[in-house]
Structure formats: structure tokens, C-alpha cells
């Protein structure tokens, strides 16, 4: 034990004054953020799938409250898919470019000129149409959670 207290401070001082650069810190490029965000969406989606399966597995969907929460999870899945697709098109693959022409108009341009991609992108940008129902169902589900769960 006495040796330990002598050795450790000595070794620490040696490393401090006589060590060379190790280059241990990894560099990150700008696309990492998008990929992390996409993984986030996938993880969110995965957790919602798990939630639906758990509710079904435990036969909680017989109760209205849990069923509504299942619907919420379902809409969040759809929203995650839509968001994932939109980010894939504009941020990740840069397939689509959006530019403001005026206050009321925008131009969506697919790199390959596909009209279908342009329409799909436009629709995908209306993702609130999926996440608002999701959060609404969550609220309604909570309103119908049977109080018996507490007893």
C-alpha cells in the first residue's frame, strides 16, 4: 500500500512532462449531424413499434385509452417515416432543392427532374398532418386511461 502511494504520483508526473502527442480525438464531418438525426428518427420509430407491440402483447388495447395511445404511436411511426424520407431527400442526398420565389410561392426542384419526387417532397413537408394527430391521440388516450390501473 505504501508503494502504491509512491508509484502513482511519480508515474503521473512522468506522463505529464515527457509524453508525446497521441492524436486520440476523432474528426467529424458536417453530414454526421444529419445521420445522427436520421438515426434519431429511426430510434423513435423503433420505440413506437415496440410500444404498439407491448400494448398488444399485454392485451391493453382492449381498453380505449391504450388503444388511443396505440393510434398515437402509429401516427408517430408515420411521421417518423415521413420526416426520415424528407430529410433523406433534402439534407442527406440533396436530391431536392427548395428556393423561395416570393412570399407565397416556392420552387421545389428534384435533381433528376422527377415530378413525382417533387410532389412527394411537397407532401412530406406537410408532416404536421401526421404528428398533430399523433399528439392528439396521446392526449385523448391519457384521458381514457382506466383509473383501475391505479388500483
Amino acid at each position: 500500500m505504501r508503494n502504491f502511494f509512491k508509484t502513482v504520483p511519480g508515474a503521473s508526473l512522468f506522463l505529464l512532462f515527457f509524453s508525446d502527442p497521441a492524436f486520440a480525438t476523432q474528426m467529424h464531418s458536417g453530414t454526421e449531424g444529419v445521420i445522427v438525426h436520421q438515426f434519431g428518427h429511426l430510434f423513435f420509430l423503433f420505440s413506437m413499434v415496440v410500444l404498439i407491440l407491448t400494448i398488444t402483447g399485454k392485451e391493453l388495447n382492449r381498453e380505449k385509452g391504450w388503444r388511443l395511445i396505440q393510434y398515437a404511436a402509429f401516427f408517430f411511426i408515420l411521421w417518423n417515416m415521413a420526416a426520415f424520407a424528407a430529410h433523406l431527400l433534402d439534407n442527406q442526398m440533396n436530391t431536392v432543392t427548395v428556393s423561395n420565389i416570393s412570399f407565397s410561392e416556392i420552387t421545389i426542384t428534384a435533381e433528376n427532374g422527377s415530378r413525382l419526387i417533387e410532389i412527394a417532397y411537397y407532401l412530406l413537408k406537410l408532416d404536421h398532418l401526421l404528428c398533430v394527430p399523433a399528439i392528439f391521440f396521446l392526449y385523448r388516450g391519457l384521458c381514457h386511461i382506466p383509473v383501475k390501473e391505479a388500483s
Binding site: N100, I101, F103, S104, E105, I106, T107, I108, T109, A110, R115, E118, I119, Y122, K125, L126, D127, H128, L129, C131, V132, I135, F136, L138, Y139
Partner: peptide
């Protein structure tokens, strides 16, 4: 493709506010 921006704007703004309200 040039499209009107208003629906997107409305959905975005109204949806964001609604999200916050229902979340709270």
C-alpha cells in the same frame, strides 16, 4: 415545380402551435 407556399406555412405554424398545446 413551383407551388404555393401558404398551405405549407399554415400547416407548419398551426401544427407547431397545436403540438405544443396538446403536448402540455
Amino acid at each position: 415545380m413551383t407551388v404555393t407556399y401558404l398551405p405549407m406555412l399554415l400547416v407548419d405554424v398551426a401544427g407547431s402551435v397545436t403540438m405544443i398545446v396538446f403536448a402540455f
